[in-house]
């Protein structure tokens, strides 16, 4: 029997969609090809959500972090780092499972039928470390060190990598603005290529961007073991049947480590446990 049939998903996509809609509720932006310019944008949203998305009403924490680190007068982003510590301390990667629009997009893409889905491969574990390197190099070091004559560093993760920016900001804005269409170049092509690869891989592999690339997922993963919201295994009740590990699409074995950095708190293991040993 296909083991996927045993998977019991909690009602997660509704929450993800509602949150995505709420934090991207400036619908006029999609009609006019503009972005929201109100004061609400001083606040960061917990998930990866480009602030140049026409609907965005908050700031992307990864974009905001690079902006502050790269500004000439501040070289450390206390506000954003503190915000991430606050959210991480409370819920860790629960944000990834429930409150990130780009996570939802990948979830939905993975539902598209494909003749073979890839659960894991050789080098998977090692590749998961890549997101920490990306966080360090593209989000922190490059904006801090590679500065222009005014002492300003560019947001290199946004510029060279982020497919969420291309999808949520680049595509709608370019589509709606003639002047931007005239300014397109190699960089736009590169970012679209990365987006295309992300989309195709998301159909084949569950959340490839979250597993290997996302610097925000890397930050929250550190807080997973200590966050207030986390899972526990009732060792008395657990019968070691292995169902939780089999259904986990992030390849975590929650019976062994319920607070693994890769766990996005999707709740599938919890719902699938035949003896309800995961709380």
């Amino acid at each position: 029997m296909d083991k996927r049939k045993k998977i019991k998903e909690p009602k997660r996509h509704g929450v993800q969609a509602l949150w995505a809609l709420l934090t991207n509720s400036y619908l006029a932006g999609f009609l006019q090809g503009k972005i929201y310019q109100g004061k609400l944008k001083t606040l960061c949203v917990p998930g990866l959500n480009c602030y140049s998305c026409p609907g965005a009403v908050g700031a992307c924490p990864i974009g905001a972090m690079q902006a502050v680190i790269g500004s000439w007068n501040f070289k450390f982003a206390f506000y954003v780092a503190g915000f991430l510590m606050f959210v991480g301390g409370l819920m860790g990667r629960f944000v990834c499972g429930w409150l990130c629009p780009f996570g939802l997009i990948q979830d939905l893409l993975h539902k598209l039928p494909f003749w073979k889905k890839l659960e894991t491969f050789r080098g998977d574990r090692l590749l998961r470390k890549l997101k920490y390197i990306i966080l360090l190099i593209f989000v922190i070091l490059m904006p801090m060190v590679l500065v222009d004559v005014l002492g300003q560093g560019a947001p290199y993760f946004c510029k060279l990598i982020c497919p969420a920016g291309t999808l949520e900001g680049g595509m709608p804005l370019v589509l709606l603005n003639q002047s931007m269409q005239n300014a397109l170049g190699l960089l736009y092509a590169w970012k679209n290529l990365l987006l295309l690869v992300t989309i195709l891989l998301s159909i084949l592999i569950y959340r490839p961007f979250c597993k290997y690339i996302c610097p925000l997922g890397a930050v929250y993963s550190v807080f997973n073991p200590i966050s207030v919201f986390r899972y526990r295994v009732d060792q008395e009740a657990c019968i070691n049947c292995g169902v939780c590990a089999k259904v986990c699409k992030m390849q975590v074995n929650p019976a062994k480590n319920a607070n693994h950095p890769e766990c996005i708190r999707c709740g599938v293991c919890r719902n699938s446990c035949p003896v309800k040993a995961l709380h």
Partner: peptide, 16 residues
Amino acid sequence: VVLEKAINICMECIGI
């Protein structure tokens, strides 16, 4: 700095 960046279209984000 966050507000300034967030209310102006970020050319890096959109790939221009």
